Simulated scan of single mutants.
Amino acid sequence: MTDPSALAHAIDARCRLHGEFVLRSGAVSDEYFDKYLFEGDPALLRRVAEAMVALLPEDTQVLGGLKLGGVPIATVVSSLTGLPAVFVRKKAKEYGTRRIAEGGDVDGRVVTLVEDIITTGGAVRNAAMALRDNGAHVSTVVCAIDRSAPDDSVLPAVQVATRSVLTKADLDAAAG
C-alpha cells in the first residue's frame, strides 16, 4: 500500500518547478506544477497507479483514460488489474473509426474514468456525457490529484463522483 504522505512528497519534489512561467490564464508565476513529470517517471507513475487500484469501484468493467494525461495512468492501472482500458478523446475523429473512445467497446459497460488532475471537472464531465451517449454507464472518476476548490466541481451536477489519490492540499503540505 502506498503511503499518501510519501507519495505527495515524491510527486511534489518531482513536479513543482521554480522559475518564471506564463500560465494558461496569461498570468506570470514563479512556480509551476508539471504533471507530466510524474507521468513520465515509471516508478512514480506505478506508485500513483497502485494507489488508484484501491479506489476503483468494484463494479468497474472498463477503465477510461482521458486524453492526454489519463492515458498513461489508465494503461498502468489496466496492467495491474487486468481490466481493459479505452482511451477517451476530447472529440471523435472525423476519419477512421470516428470513435470517442479507442481501444474497445463501452456500450452497456461500467466505465470508470481515469484522469491525472482535476481542477473543475469540465473535461471529465464532457467525457462522461460522450461515453453515456455511446451506451456506457459512467458514475466515477479516479484521479491522481484533485485540485478543485470546494464547490467548483461540475461533476456532481452530472452524477459523477470523484475519488482522488491526492489533493492540492496534500501537495501543498508536502511542499511546506
Rank of each mutant, 00 (worst) to 15 (best):
D133Q: 15
P84N: 13
V138F: 05
G82P: 04
P84M: 13
M129A: 13
R98H: 11
Y95A: 06
L131S: 11
D116G: 07
S139A: 14
S139V: 02
E115W: 01
K93Y: 06
V111Q: 03
A85G: 08
I100E: 08
A74H: 07
N126R: 14
A92P: 06
E102R: 10
T140G: 05
A123Q: 15
A128K: 05
C143Y: 01
V111E: 01
G104I: 08
E115P: 02
S139M: 00
K90C: 03
I118G: 02
F87G: 05
V124M: 01
H137F: 08
A74E: 08
G135I: 09
E102H: 10
A136M: 09
K91C: 00
K93P: 10
R132F: 08
I117W: 05
G121N: 05
R132V: 10
S79H: 14
A130P: 06
R99Y: 00
E102N: 10
V77F: 01
V124Y: 01
R125Q: 15
Y95P: 01
R109A: 13
R89N: 11
V110W: 00
C143W: 00
I118V: 15
R99E: 14
A101Y: 09
S139F: 02
G82E: 06
M129Y: 00
V77Q: 00
A92C: 09
G135P: 09
G121L: 03
L83S: 06
D105A: 15
L80T: 07
D107S: 14
V77G: 01
G82W: 08
E115R: 03
V106N: 05
V138N: 03
F87N: 04
C143D: 04
S79N: 12
V86T: 13
T140V: 15
D105F: 09
E94M: 07
T97P: 02
C143F: 04
G104E: 08
R89H: 11
T120Y: 04
A101R: 10
V141H: 02
T140N: 08
T120I: 06
T75D: 01
T140E: 02
G96Y: 10
D133N: 14
G96Q: 10
V114L: 08
A127Y: 01
R89Y: 10
H137T: 12
S79T: 14
V111H: 03
I117H: 04
S139E: 13
A85L: 07
H137K: 12
K90A: 14
S78I: 06
V76W: 02
R89K: 14
I73K: 00
E94V: 12
T75V: 03
V106K: 05
S139T: 14
K93S: 13
A74Y: 06
V86Y: 12
E115C: 03
N134K: 13
I118E: 03
G103I: 12
E115V: 02
D133K: 14
G103P: 11
V142H: 06
N126P: 00
V141F: 04
R99W: 00
V124G: 01
I100N: 04
R98M: 12
P84L: 13
D133E: 15
D107T: 13
I100P: 00
E102M: 08
A85H: 07
L131W: 11
V86P: 12
E102Q: 10
T81M: 03
R109I: 05
T81N: 01
L113Y: 11
D107W: 08
T97N: 11
A123G: 13
N126V: 01
A128E: 05
G96P: 10
S78Y: 09
I100H: 09
N134A: 14
I117V: 15
K93E: 09
